[in-house]
């Protein structure tokens, strides 16, 4: 019995909600996996902050063009219909509300949609990149994440304790245990692993979630 989803399975679930032809920005790292799990027949257009729309797979080793990279500084290729643009146009696409979806990682998500994903607080070198821009402007801002931290603390919380990336910006969270929407300042449970009771899930969640009449089973392929 599945006790929690792998990162690949969380990414798969998030990918099912992306429409054909959607303009999508995937955060660096884990969120990049979402691109691998688009349903057959659907092709989103992926945006990268450094100025490409419709980039594709990584090139084979040895054939990298280092003028053709993504926001994670990894070499990419182009799909037919790709476009280049400078950074101000790139963030006009972001801030101007032209992206359909941004999918980001998280340290914490609060029930009012606040997101903390850029800093673990004092110490070290702070780095923000495009995260604070991406959370404003995409029509839908979704988060993919483990449901709890490595030490078992909830990542879905009443109020974020880590430095905020954005205020009231997240609309849906795909976790290793559930799919939860944020509506009117509350978590609303949409799907959960069938192996988990409502009480067990609530105990792992840092704020009370609302349970609508129908909560679907969170079912994903094994891989």
């Amino acid at each position: 019995m599945t006790t929690k989803l792998s990162n690949a399975q969380i990414a798969w679930r998030a990918a099912q909600d992306i429409d054909d032809g959607a303009y999508v920005n995937l955060g660096i790292g884990f969120p990049e996996m979402v691109a691998q799990y688009q349903p057959p027949g659907r092709q989103a257009v992926f945006h990268t902050e450094n100025g490409i729309l419709n980039f594709g797979e990584p090139p084979i080793a040895g054939e990298e063009d280092w003028d053709l990279i993504n926001a994670g500084k990894k070499a990419v290729t182009l799909n037919p219909g790709a476009a280049f643009f400078h950074h101000a146009d790139s963030f006009a696409m972001v801030r101007g509300g032209h992206l359909d979806v941004a999918i980001l990682g998280a340290y914490q998500v609060a029930e009012n949609g606040d997101l903390a994903n850029w800093s673990i607080g004092a110490g070290g070198v702070p780095a923000v990149g495009g995260a604070m821009d991406l959370v404003h402007g995409a029509k839908r801002v979704a988060v993919i994440t483990e449901h709890v931290t490595k030490t078992g603390a909830p990542k879905l919380v009443k109020r974020c304790t880590l430095p905020l990336t954005g205020v009231a910006c997240v609309t849906r969270v795909y976790t290793s245990l559930a799919v939860i929407d944020i509506e009117n300042g509350r978590f609303v449970l949409r799907e959960k692993l069938p192996s988990l009771s409502l009480e067990e899930l609530q105990a792992l969640t840092g704020a009370e979630f609302l349970v609508p009449d129908t909560v679907a089973d969170l079912v994903v392929p094994e891989f």
Binding site: H86, H87, F91, V94, A127, G137
Partner: peptide, 25 residues
């Protein structure tokens, strides 16, 4: 430290003679 889109827009504004602007970022 400046958010990336704000950094781009601050530079764009500098080049365009716009001393300040407002952003949700």
């Amino acid at each position: 430290l400046v958010p990336q889109g704000t950094l781009a827009e601050r530079i764009r504004a500098g080049g365009a003679g716009i001393p300040a602007f407002y952003t949700p970022t």
